[in-house]
Each structure stands twice: as C-alpha cells, then as structure tokens.
Nucleic acid binder design. Structure first.
Lengths: 257, 257
DNA sequence: CGGCGAATTGACGGACGTCAACTGCTGTGG
DNA sequence: CCACAGCAGTTGACGTCCGTCAATTCGCCG
C-alpha cells in the first residue's frame, strides 16, 4: 500500500487523533482492494467484518424493502462507511455498491473494537464520527418528513451550487436515476420537478445546471441550517467547528455509519 | 438525589461500563429537575449544555421547518437524549418537549467531553450508544422512504403488540395526533388508515387495539428485521446481542442522539 | 447508420394533505 | 345534576402531489 494512501487515511478525522501505534495496528492487517463498477461490497443483513474506507471512486449505500429500493447516501473519497455496524459487531442495515471502479481499504472489525478500548483518543474519535453521522441522518429524516419533493430538489440544487463554488452553474454529480432515489422520488418525477423549476430560474442542459435567479430559488427552497449542511468547501479546516465541516460532503451524510 | 435514581442511571448501557470515579464526576455536578407537561426543554438550534436523562415521564423530540412540525422520536424512562450534540459541542438539531410531567437528570456537557478522553471505557460506551442511535435512525429513514403510510402504521401496530406481550390486544401509548406525527402522516389520515385496517382484522376502540387476524396484518405489513426492531421485551438482557436490545424501546429509537 | 439505455413527456390513478363539519368525551360551572 | 365549552377524534369532499405505465426523444457508443 502506497504511503500517500496511508496518509490520506491518517488525515481522516477518525484517525487524526489516534496514536501512531494504534494506526499501525489497524493498517497492518488491512486489505487494499480495487472493485469494478457495480460491485456489491456488502448486502444488507450481512455480518460486517470490516470497516471500509473509500479511497477512490464512488460508493452508494442503499436500503431495500419489498422490491423497493432507496439510496440512503452516496459517498466520495475519502470516506469511511458502516462504522456503526463495526462498533456494535452487528449486521449491516444497508447495502453498499460501487457506482464507479473504486479503490477501497478494508480494516479488520475486531481490530477496531480491540483498539478502541486501549486508545481512548481513538474511542473518542469514533464517538465523534458516529455523532456526526447521526446528525447527518437527523437532517435527512427532517428533510424527508418535512419537505415535499420539489422543496427537497430545490435545496439539493442550492447545496450543490454552494459546494461547487457558488458560481450559479454546476454539474450534477450523479446520474438522474440515482439522484432521484437519493431525493426520495422517481426518475420521472425528478424530470418533472426540474422542469417545474424553470419558473424559478433553473435551467438544465444534460448534467449542467445554471441558476439564473438565485433569490427566487431560495424563496422556494427556504434552506435551513438545521436541515441543510451549507458549509462552502474550505481547505483543511481546523478547530472545533470543523469537526462537522468536512471536505467534499455529499448530500445527506458524507461518512456513513 | 435519591440513590435509587442514581442506580437507574448507572444501569444504563451508557454508564454501565465506566469507572466509579467517572460516574461520580459526572453525577456530582448534575441537576435533577422536574418539569410540568408541555415544557420545552430545548429548542432546535440552541446551544446544548447538558446531556439529558429522562428518569420519569415522557419526552418528545421534534423537528420543525417552514411552519411544519414532525415528531422524530418519543422517549420513555430510562433514556438519554441529545448525546450527539453534547459529544460534538454543537447546536441541537431537534427540539425536546415534555409530553407529561417529567423528572430529568441533566449532566454537564463539558464534563462529559472531559471524562471521555480520560476513561476509555466510557468513550467506548458513548461510541456504542451513538452507533445504536445511528442504526435506529437508519431504520426510521428506510421506514419513511420505502413504505407507504398504511404499511408504516401496520408495522407500528405489530411492533407495539410484540412489545406489550404479543397478546394481540394492547393500548396505543400516545395520543393519536402524536402517533400520526411520529408515523409521518396527518391525524386525519391516521384515522382513515386505522379504519382501513378493519379489512385486516384490526379493531380500535379508543386507545385499545385488538388484532383478530395477525397473519393477515403481517401479510400487509411485511415486517423486516432490517427496519423494525422486533425484539420482544426481555428483562435485564446481557451479552452481545443486548447492546441493541434495550428495555422499553419506543418506535424509531429509544435513546436519541 | 443502428441500437441501446437514459431521460423526458403525457395520461391516468391512487395516496395523501387540507378544509370543514360533525361526533363523542371530559371537565367545569351554574 | 345538567348544560355547555373545549378538545381529540372522526368523517366527508376536494385538490394536489406523486407513482405507474406507456410512448417518445435524446445522446452516446458501437
């Protein structure tokens, strides 16, 4: 495994505070692996043996019930996922699937649990990570229960715009089927909702979106700091507030359970 | 503060594993307080200074947006809440309101953060608690995104039935307005949905529900262990599986972030 | 050029929210 | 003891949002 990859992992909030020894212990027994697009890494209900760290590519977390399927989160590098199941040594509640060819680091679950009780700093980092993930889900649930489809879409566009520089023109980061599932609607309805947003100054050409009347869109969306994570992207932030202001977050949560 | 109350707190998963010294430190600077019904303990967006422990009564966690309001969780004793905000020293994302007159223990947030870095056992317990809360929310979000209102209600009834002994007759634990908000529907629609369940052998007289054809209801509800927490109530469970099998859980999560 | 999948559009029906009227219960005060 | 106010719950009518199915268009790659 390349040093540069190790350093990227070490820089994660989850590992930044732990001792060198802890970090060596965890990475010594780790697997670094590449998966093609469309690979199911983990099926919901499966026993979870590893903590996954996405180093390159895109991973989708999804839930299923009764032949329906929904996207709970879409992850980009560098992100960890299924921490909660690892901490509790429990079954996964979500499936994980690569959207693109991805490079993934797999850290032994038992090792993580063992190290937590020995390195309080690491245990605290895990608790903080889980707390951040929890709060991301609270936001998602409020978003889902309190807003209608059009409002969710409008807020999503505002969030993406801010994350991509606030220039009022940006690209949708996923194909529209996936985006629809993330927003909790059907692809057909996403099309119609995007069409409906022309009245609010939103133009869509393929994957590129331009917002010609930001104020009008905001009036519709009514973004709320208690639902939307609206931090503009800042480089290597430090200090207290940054614990929840991570680089490159994707809609509901960047790092996921 | 009475010893018996202290012991109830000590018995919580969150505090069971920590040292006596840690526990004394935390409870020394704590407030024990009674609140009348309908008191807002915490408004969403407020700075959170305490970890709350509900010892007696009922507390509702709710979220608001644009004059809409939704219930995210309803807590019964003994439960902790807003742990996530305390761990991250962040604003609360939900409001907390007493439904009945309640007795609540308030533990200093700074003390909790301080103690976490000194007592690895406690930090691990916090991480496990957060992981359990996270998984509760994943279930809620899947429940919300994947099921329709009637299906959510049917599964709620099945869950309540199991939690109250599986005798196919039980009482709704909250008034119907609150239940509707918890299930993500309007009170009117809850009425209609309950009426619709007659076809599946569900009879409702005031707060008491009887299920005359459990199999029919199950065929409609299609309960799923990856969404519904269907553990029947067991007394003082021990061992690994119990980490997520707590006494007296209420629908989505028992203990809440 | 042909073909495939993604995206769009239209038509339709069902689920759900809203408004309003009505019922039934409970506690209060005459 | 009864009348009545107040509130939770129910029921009905209606409109909107949203999912489904089907047909069509668009863009990309062979």
């Amino acid at each position: 495994m390349r040093d540069i990859d190790l350093e990227r992992v070490r820089a994660l909030p989850l590992f930044r505070g732990c001792s060198d020894e802890t970090f060596r212990t965890l990475t010594a027994g780790a697997f670094l692996q590449r998966f093609p697009a469309g690979t199911t890494l983990l099926l919901e209900g499966d026993q979870v043996d590893f903590l996954y760290v996405l180093l390159d590519g895109i991973v989708e977390l999804q839930g299923t019930w009764n032949d329906r399927e929904t996207t709970l989160s879409i992850l980009r590098p560098v992100s960890t996922f299924i921490l909660a199941a690892v901490v509790l040594d429990a079954d996964g509640l979500m499936s994980a699937r690569t959207v693109e060819r991805s490079q993934i680091l797999m850290l032994s679950g038992p090792a993580i649990r063992r190290v937590m009780v020995e390195d309080a700093g690491f245990a605290v980092a895990v608790a903080q990570e889980m707390a951040g993930c929890y709060r991301g889900l609270v936001r998602s649930l409020k978003n889902q229960k309190l807003r209608g489809g059009l409002e969710r879409l409008a807020n999503y566009l505002i969030t993406q715009n801010l994350r991509q520089g606030g220039l009022n023109t940006f690209n949708l980061p996923h194909d529209k089927r996936t985006l629809a599932s993330l927003l909790g609607m059907t692809p057909e309805n996403l099309s119609r909702s995007l069409a409906a947003l022309v009245d609010y100054g939103v133009e869509v050409h393929g994957p590129t979106v331009t917002i010609s009347r930001p104020a009008a869109l905001e009036r519709l969306a009514k973004p709320d700091p208690l639902i939307d994570n609206h931090q503009p992207v800042t480089d290597t932030p430090t200090g207290k507030a940054q614990r929840e202001r991570w680089p490159l977050p994707d809609h509901p949560v960047r790092t996921a359970g």
